[in-house]
Design a protein around this nucleic acid. Structure first.
Length: 759
DNA sequence: GAGTTTGAAACT
DNA sequence: CAGTTTCAAACTC
């Protein structure tokens, strides 16, 4: 790239140890960022090295931020292209990884720059300013800086990686596309910028580390504000002010964010009108959502995530739908949207339907990826926040009380559902229920639209309750007590259930690593990618119908299953496959016995994942070995009672690591963020994160996600592992896990044959 | 839309 | 812990 030649780059390069951004890796970078988010954070903080690398990014970011201020003529940019790329990537990070917040701040630092990155930064900024003038110009060019921001942001969420393209160049091109909204964008951008701030703010808070970095929120905010001020100070402020609105509720495992201020702060910024076209589009579906409550509360709350989510959604949805702005159309997008209306109603029923029901937002459900993207962030955020914040202490909002499901659960559920939708169900024909589910699935957190009559939605029978979400209008339940107004009841009930079964609210399906196995090997081994936590007990459905939780979750049956005549398309129970071959049923039992050990191992895996899900992101992130977490047996922690029944066995063996698990569990702290993030990433990304961690970042995955074409994304079945992404990611995990045979089996993915069931 | 089937959850 | 009942989703018609 000419840019490289440019004195500026040279200069920069000299300054910072960090090599010039790897354009080719952009995608990787993005992923990496994600991964970084997951694990690396520590590294980031730990080593100054990181900073340098980030610096350039930071600079960029600042520029981006500043862009709005500066209007530029577009052209200089390309030289910068590289820089721009990095720049955006940075944003991606910001968006993607909360952890990144630090980085971002640093970036923003330009304002403060002196503080953070002493040398390089200062230099960088200069370079930026000087040499980069081009850059700024670029950004400025974007003149649309706004547009850039918006674009970048949007892109960042989803495509962070792709953003590269979006670069100024795109800006230009995008403009054409964007033109329509440019005016809006400018405003929107402002908002977004603000939103970012908010995000950072939030993220920062959670992670003490970040704080330690010395990132001054104020500074950031200021910087941001400044930039924003240039454009719109107000929006930013409002957003910032909003931050406080977020409240995290941690119940041992279940962190839940609640948008306390949902109504308060939101109104101004969130109003779809204010939002960028994309945003609007996203919102549109939920027009009803106009009120922040509707959508904000649940997931988006976390960070500006709602924005992020919006963005992502917009990206996917819009793209999928057609143009970004399909927004208006967005409403049309899917029948799903039609469903959204309920959200509004919910809105009306503030009490009854808690925040969590963002389902409306999901409208894009069709796009599984979108859902993932959206969900993850939210969840991630939530966790982060959670970690940072303790439980509901804050929960001023009723929503806060919402029964906290494991995020993971939700996510997984989403996956499962998604997978279900995608795979199993022929797309549901028509039954409204099915459709609903799909929608819900997309959201992940969205209400499940239960129709409980006798359980009052206070039992696991109730999907909403089981998912940790309040029932909302879409639900047709009777005598529902799963509402904000009955928070106490809900919580107490939840506790009771958990006391009985600590894992009651844990995700039913655990997505381990290994997508690949699922499809292929399942015969012998259950697809490692995901497994049902407890295992199903199907007898008549042959695990071929949704009655089977495994099948419903889009995962193969595992040893832990007690199903009869398992024919799970996602993977038969290990024993079964062998049995089927050798001995039909009897063997099954025998196998069970024989397999027990394997089961234990498997269980461990499952458990581990669960644990990871719960908190342990650390494991994932920090150590590939995280797997070790398996010992999760510890998992049970939350509920004082350990679950008796469920998984203790697994715990038995590898106690060694359990500590981690335990740690992870209890602690949701900063690590939690990472871990959660990681988990989340895994869940959502399907291991892609792990890939990133490994360094395997597969552009593909990123591509898929990023790809403007929803289509790519839509199909993804995280859970099933169908998606290549998952596979890749899984591998990593598996590798890390080597100790366990079963895991090894997972590893098989790479070498399917190699797999030996754990013995 | 009503009725049946199914398997998990809850209960004993 | 095992067996039974209850429940709501999934499915069929």
């Amino acid at each position: 790239m000419a840019c490289l030649d440019s004195p500026v780059f040279n200069f920069i390069n000299n300054l910072s140890p960090i090599p010039p951004p790897k354009p080719s890796d952009t995608a990787h970078n993005v992923q990496l960022f994600k991964s970084s988010d997951l694990a690396p954070v520590s590294s980031i903080f730990a080593s100054p090295h990181v900073n340098p690398a980030k610096e350039p990014k930071i600079l960029i970011r600042d520029d981006s931020v500043q862009l709005p201020q500066d209007l530029h003529s577009p052209n200089s940019v390309r030289t910068r292209v590289g820089s721009t790329i990095t720049f955006r990537m940075i944003r991606c990070r910001d968006i993607v990884s909360e952890n990144c917040n630090i980085n971002c701040r640093l970036n923003e630092a330009p304002i403060d720059s002196s503080d953070h990155t002493s040398n390089s930064e200062s230099q960088l900024p200069q370079s930026m300013q000087n040499g980069v003038g081009s850059v700024e110009s670029d950004k400025d060019q974007c003149a649309d800086g706004k547009t850039d921001l918006t674009i970048s942001q949007e892109c960042t969420d989803l495509e962070g990686m792709n953003l590269d393209e979006s670069g100024p160049d795109k800006m230009d091109s995008s403009h054409s596309g964007m033109d329509l909204h440019e005016s809006q964008l400018s405003e929107q951008n402002k908002d977004e910028a603000v939103a970012y701030n908010g995000d950072y703010m939030i993220a920062n808070q959670p992670s003490s580390d970040m704080l330690t970095l010395g990132l001054p929120f104020g500074t950031e905010t200021q910087s941001v504000n400044d930039t924003q001020k240039a454009d719109n100070s107000d929006s930013g402020k409002s957003l910032l002010s909003e931050e406080p609105n977020y409240y995290i509720q941690n119940s041992a495992h279940e962190p839940h964010l609640y948008w306390t201020g949902r109504v308060e702060g939101a109104p101004v910024d969130y109003t779809p009108q204010a939002l960028p076209g994309a945003m609007q589009s996203q919102l549109m579906p939920c027009n009803k959502l106009n009120d922040p409550q509707d959508y904000m509360p649940t997931e988006q709350n976390g960070l500006s995530q709602h924005l992020r989510g919006m963005r992502r959604r917009s990206l996917f949805n819009e793209k999928a739908g057609a143009s970004n702005k399909s927004v208006d159309k967005a409403s049309d997008r899917h029948s799903v949207n039609s469903t959204t209306p309920k959200c509004k109603t919910i809105h009306g029923d503030i009490n009854s339907k808690p925040l969590r029901t963002p389902p409306c937002a999901l409208p894009g459900i069709g796009l599984h990826l979108n859902a993932f993207a959206a969900i993850p962030k939210e969840k991630i955020v939530c966790r982060d926040i959670q970690s940072s914040i303790n439980e509901s202490s804050n929960l001023p909002c009723p929503a806060g009380s919402s029964p906290p499901p494991f995020e993971q659960n939700i996510i997984k559920d989403e996956f499962a559902q998604r997978t279900d939708v995608a795979s199993a169900e022929p797309s549901s024909q028509g039954s409204p229920k099915k459709k609903r589910r799909k929608f819900d699935n997309g959201d992940g957190t969205s209400c499940k639209r239960c129709s409980c009559k006798k359980s009052k939605c206070l039992k696991l029978y109730c999907e909403c309750f089981a998912a940790g979400v309040y029932c909302s209008e879409p639900c047709t339940c009777q005598g529902c007590l799963n509402t904000e107004s009955h928070m106490e009841t809900v919580l107490s009930t939840r506790q009771q259930i958990e006391s009985r079964n600590p894992l009651a609210f844990a995700p039913k399906v655990i997505h381990t690593s290994e997508p690949g196995l699922e499809l292929g090997d399942f015969s012998n081994k259950t697809p490692a990618s995901a497994r049902h936590k407890r295992g199903c007990n199907c007898k008549k459905s042959s695990c071929l119908k949704k009655y089977c939780e495994c099948f419903q979750g889009g995962v193969g049956c595992s040893i832990s299953c007690r199903c009869e005549g398992c024919k799970n398309a996602f993977g038969r129970r290990e024993g079964v496959a062998a049995l089927s071959i050798e001995e039909p049923k009897e063997a099954s039992e025998e196998n069970n016995a024989c397999v027990k050990e394997e089961k234990c191992e498997i269980d461990k895996q499952l458990v581990i994942y669960q644990a990871a899900d719960l908190a342990p992101a650390e494991n994932l992130l920090t150590t590939p070995s995280m797997v070790e977490c398996r010992p999760l047996a510890c998992l049970p922690p939350p509920s004082s009672k350990k679950s008796s029944s469920e998984k203790p066995r697994s715990s038995t063996k590898q106690v060694g690591h359990p500590s981690r698990l335990c740690n992870s569990q209890a602690p949701l702290k900063t690590d939690m963020l990472l871990s959660q993030f990681g988990n989340y990433a895994e869940m959502v990304l399907g291991d892609s994160t792990s890939d990133t961690l490994k360094g395997n970042s597969s552009p593909q995955t990123s591509v898929k996600v990023v790809s403007p074409n929803k289509k790519r994304v839509s199909p993804p079945r995280m859970g099933t592992g169908l998606s290549p992404i998952c596979k890749s990611g899984r591998k990593l995990i598996l590798k890390s896990i080597p100790s366990f045979p079963s895991l090894g089996g997972d590893l098989n993915n790479e070498d399917p044959k190699s797999k030996t069931p754990a013995s």
